[in-house]
Amino acid sequence: MGRQSLYTEEFRKDAVALYRAADGKRTYADVAADVGVSGETLRTWVRKDTAARNARSQDRSTGADGTEADELARLRAENARLRGAEKEWQLEREILRRAAAYFAKEVK
């Protein structure tokens, strides 16, 4: 079991945000000196934050519950369902168009 950090999660997030806001114009050491930590500590926080962002991004792209193959199968099934529904809507629209044309003739 590791020791408890001296810095709060909020402090770490703020330090990482400050480094990212510099957009590569400042080094880890420069930003770290501003917030009172070592450059290596800040570098570790940035790496962990990047890994967490990538994991969240990966979870969203795979559906968080399964593999990419599962997500692909789900999307294909949904696509087939939507195409079927679209065909129904097109048929309904055509029927309504014909009915409107018929009734338009009757009104004249």
Rank of each mutant, 00 (worst) to 15 (best):
M1D: 08
M1W: 03
L6I: 03
L6H: 08
Y7H: 09
E9K: 06
F11N: 03
R12T: 01
R12G: 01
R12I: 02
R12L: 00
R12V: 02
K13W: 07
D14N: 06
A15S: 13
V16K: 01
V16P: 05
A17L: 10
A17N: 11
L18K: 13
L18G: 04
Y19D: 00
A21Q: 12
A22F: 06
A22T: 15
D23C: 09
G24Y: 07
G24Q: 11
Y28R: 01
Y28Q: 03
A29S: 14
D30T: 08
D30F: 02
A33K: 11
G36D: 05
V37Y: 04
V37C: 05
L42P: 13
W45H: 02
W45N: 01
V46W: 00
A52K: 04
N54P: 00
R56T: 12
Q58V: 12
R60N: 10
R60M: 13
S61E: 15
T62Q: 06
E68C: 10
E68S: 12
A69N: 02
D70C: 08
D70P: 06
E71V: 03
L72R: 08
L72E: 06
R74Q: 11
A80M: 01
L82N: 05
R83T: 00
R83H: 04
Q90K: 13
Q90N: 13
L91R: 13
E92Y: 08
I95D: 06
L96K: 12
L96V: 09
R97P: 06
R98D: 14
A99Y: 14
A100E: 13
A101Y: 09
A101M: 11
Y102P: 00
Y102T: 01
F103I: 12
A104Y: 13
K105R: 09
K105C: 03
E106W: 10
